[in-house]
Design a binder for these strands. Structure first.
Lengths: 333, 333
DNA sequence: TTGTAAGCGTTATCAC
DNA sequence: GTGATAACGCTTACAA
């Protein structure tokens, strides 16, 4: 059995209260400090976090609730949030809803029951029910990646408009006018932004927007594959395609290989996110990068502030700029 | 403030003890059951897990301690373990040691202090100190991916010998005799197995084992890149290369692209693990797959058994067979 | 500066 | 079947 504060007090010849105070940073006489330190060392005492939690109505854990761990974006977030909050003494609970709105609500309840001190949410459902549940219980919340309509929260997002605008403008500068796009669910915040950027770039250049060039791939590998096939089988195939997330980029490559098309001779490609793919494929892929690490760290920091009760400038939205990497997957026309 | 069991008892006109018993599955009169149910519903009562934990010396959380979340192997494990244990009421804490042995020990202590009910360890350090700490505190432990010398634990591993043997044998059948291998740290359990399989296949075929054909890439992208360059710049370049983990496979592709070599004409490749890469590259990649999902699920199940106190057949080692997928990255000589 | 004691929300032991 | 009560390990008024 591990030793308790009671054992330490006994060993040091002091009361529990004194030991507790010392541990929590209140000042004590030098001699008592020495006695406590010695006792702690001898007994290898470590405070019991559960008891602490019960007393303080805190669990010293925070959760990341996300759609699926199979996306690099999500794992990257987990990693940077963990780096940020574990050093502050918080354990980080990972909770996947497996792209299932009902499960997202169940897991939200699970986390509430576990009394997590804060939640970082990468939303799956767009109706905001999960947010309402969390807010009803006054649990600090930071929403990542998306904004949910009619729900006021702190959030960390990408400048999606720019992430769509820059790459497409780049394609136009290279002489392309038949430019397709693979998008996510049109209801998604990120889709709206990225697609908006695409349209803005075309419009600015006086290029007509064609509906058949806009294909929804649902942000998944399979969806990207199908959407890419649809685009490539059009009567008039686009000469260039902007793929607006990472998983669809993978799917698109599968389709391209299946159709035996050559990049960039047959088709020019701009992808999304700087995960292993970009430099592994040949020729290397031009892509728009989200600063995932910075986004995750910001989420962790902001959540920590809220947990500490600092609600200045609530609700706060932090917008990160994408970075475009210019590689060899675009043909100059 | 959330309602407590005390509130439920008061509302139902019963004692706390009775309510507690009902909640914990003991039988009560039908009328009292109804009263309790009604009170629970009206008050939206959810048991306080922290108090429960304090009382039972349990935290209802388990941890996965792993080197780095940037590997698909690790995230895949997190995902399947979470799927397995969250439904049983356990939260899953993710803890990365960032490929740092000292941090691995610190985080082990962190988890012990958080009183996790069990740990799944994907070891980084090979000295087993982390295992000793965990075992000293009698925390149920399942080790994944590796076996650590002189440390008896439950563990889930791949049949690494077979994972090395089969692909190399396949290369030999295709007429290759100059076959290189990219390995991990030679001290690693997995390296020994996979390299052993490579050597066995060569030996059986009467092919000489050349030291310069065995290059350590440390299981990292950068290491794989460097090791691949070394192999390709040998006086006599191998005609085929077996790359014994996923990250090195990525690194190797970077090197191949850098050297502008064509697969399979210039060089034949067998990779490792069925993550997005295999079918995205062109031509598609022949690879050895670890059944990561099954391995993670087994780890979760076994840990759960141990937590429940079922120590029959301890220590147990579960060995999973690799599956080889034959694609287009091998030239027939 | 230090000690005392109540209480956080449960469960388990004992009476009734 | 049900109720009262001590205990889990800690923090925090309040008292000394």
């Amino acid at each position: 059995m591990a030793s308790t504060i009671r054992d330490v007090a006994a060993r040091a010849g002091l009361s529990i209260g004194t030991v507790s105070k010392y541990i929590n940073g209140y000042s004590v006489k030098e001699t008592t400090q020495a006695a406590i330190e010695a006792a702690i060392k001898e007994l290898d005492y470590h405070p019991n976090n559960i008891a602490k939690g019960l007393r303080n109505a805190k669990s010293f854990s925070i959760a990341i609730l996300l759609p699926m761990l199979d996306s690099n974006f999500c794992t990257s977030m987990v990693s940077s949030i963990e780096s940020c909050l574990l050093p502050k003494g918080y354990s980080v609970i990972v909770c996947e809803c497996h792209n299932n709105a009902k499960m997202e609500l169940q897991k939200t309840q699970f986390l509430i029951d576990r009394m997590v001190d804060g939640i970082v949410l990468i939303p799956y459902s767009l109706d905001g029910k999960q947010i309402e549940m969390i807010q009803k219980h006054n649990i600090p919340l930071v929403v990542l990646d998306q904004k949910i309509k009619n729900h006021e929260t702190d959030c960390i997002v990408l400048d999606n408009m720019l992430a769509g605008y820059e790459p497409v403008k780049h394609l136009i500068e290279f002489g392309h006018t038949d430019i397709g796009i693979l998008t996510g669910n049109p209801e998604h915040y990120t889709t709206k932004g990225r697609l908006g950027g695409y349209k803005k770039a075309l419009t600015e250049a006086g290029i007509e927007i064609k509906d058949e060039y806009i294909q929804c791939g649902d942000y998944t590998i399979d969806g990207g594959y199908d959407a890419m096939l649809r685009l490539c089988r059009l009567q008039k195939r686009p000469t260039a395609i902007f793929i607006s997330n990472y998983d669809m980029t993978i799917g698109a490559y599968l389709a391209i290989n299946y159709l035996n098309l050559k990049i960039p001779d047959d088709i020019s490609i701009v992808g999304f996110d700087n995960f292993p793919l970009a430099n592994v494929v040949y020729p290397s892929l031009t892509f728009a990068e989200q600063p995932t690490d910075a986004m995750g760290k910001d989420a962790g920091k902001l959540l920590y502030e809220r947990i500490k009760g600092n609600y200045s400038n609530y609700p706060k939205t932090i917008v990160h700029k994408p970075v475009i990497y210019y590689k060899d997957s675009i043909r100059c026309i």
